[in-house]
């Protein structure tokens, strides 16, 4: 590796770390994606590749110190290699997920994998046992989470998370992003943390309603400050989206990565935001479902709605 390459790699690692610090949900999503990456089919396993492989790889490396573990797993061809499972399990044991999404997803994935292994006529008992133990551990983590949610603390944690995330916005730590992205990142971070967990797992509907209103109110206050105008005024869609072109490549990548779940038909606002962040500077002339004009208030309504409905 040349000095230049080495320097470039260093810079790249630094920027990934900076991004992770700024947006802790990147880490959670990465783990989640990692879990998701293993697809269990009838009698073999496959690793699905995703579009943001490069970014994912860099994040995973920064989390685990393992540069190429997933790379090894990425294989467009069907593989029956149990090594894939072993490596995957190894990686997961190194790094613990914190979000309920990752944990519950992991539990499901583990079950799938175990079932698949069992179907391979019990030849790989050792691996199956390792899986079994790990899955017990994960299940207990999930139980703990659910217990935690049933007591008063959960709502308080969610509220506290909400404050914390909006404090970050208010303090100007998102200032390099345009308003639309700031809102997206804020809601996305809430989705991955205690706030989102509370909404997914709690049965306390009244609290949920209260917290939702609080989210809306805080968004309104912050957007109003950022836009410097009445949120009921309509703005042209290009005024919302064109500042996204000017973001740094890393920031764009982060945004693209975090929003990769959005589809144009169901999440038109977030999808349009993605288009604007694409490196090719593709700004679609046919906006499809993206509004031609949009007020600040509408942006908030739509962003919350699209996030609520994400699968």
């Amino acid at each position: 590796m040349t000095k230049k390459e080495s320097l470039s790699n260093s810079n790249s690692r630094l920027s990934i770390l900076t991004l992770q610090n700024m947006h802790p949900q990147i880490r959670e999503k990465c783990i989640f994606d990692y879990i998701n990456g293993l697809e269990v089919l009838e009698d073999h396993l496959r690793v699905r590749s995703k579009s943001n492989e490069q970014f994912f790889g860099r994040v995973w490396e920064s989390i685990t110190g393992q540069a190429i573990s997933r790379q090894q797993l990425v294989d467009q061809n069907i593989t029956t290699s149990l090594n894939s499972v072993a490596i995957w399990l190894q990686s997961l044991q190194l790094e613990k997920a914190e979000s309920d999404l990752a944990i519950s997803h992991l539990a499901d994935k583990l079950l799938e994998t175990r079932t698949a292994l069992v179907n391979q006529r019990g030849e790989h008992k050792a691996l199956a046992d390792r899986l079994h133990n790990f899955s017990l551990y994960v299940s207990s983590q999930l139980s703990d989470l659910k217990i935690c949610l049933s007591n008063v603390d959960a709502a308080r944690l969610a509220s506290s998370h909400l404050e914390q995330v909006f404090d970050k916005w208010e303090a100007g730590r998102l200032e390099k992003y345009p308003p639309l992205i700031r809102l997206f990142l804020t809601i996305d971070e809430l989705h991955w943390g205690n706030f989102g967990t509370f909404f997914r797992l709690s049965q306390k509907e009244d609290e949920k309603v209260r917290l939702k209103h609080q989210l809306v109110d805080k968004s309104i206050v912050q957007m109003k400050k950022d836009l410097g105008k009445d949120l009921s005024k309509l703005m042209l869609s290009q005024d919302w989206l064109s500042p996204i072109h000017k973001l740094s490549p890393d920031s764009k990548e982060a945004v693209l990565y975090l929003s990769d779940w959005a589809s144009p038909s169901n999440e038109p606002i977030i999808s349009a935001m993605r288009y604007a962040a694409l490196p090719e500077q593709y700004f679609p002339h046919d906006m499809g479902d993206f509004p031609y004009v949009l007020s600040g208030r509408q942006v908030i309504n739509h962003m919350i709605y699209e996030n609520n409905n994400r699968k």
Binding site: S232, K233, L234, P291, L294, S295, Q298, N301, Y305
Partner: peptide
């Protein structure tokens, strides 16, 4: 219902302008 509410909000936003 949720879609309808969102749509009405969008229309109101336009109407008020």
């Amino acid at each position: 219902k949720e879609r309808t509410e969102l749509h009405t909000q969008d229309v109101l936003a336009v109407k008020n302008n």
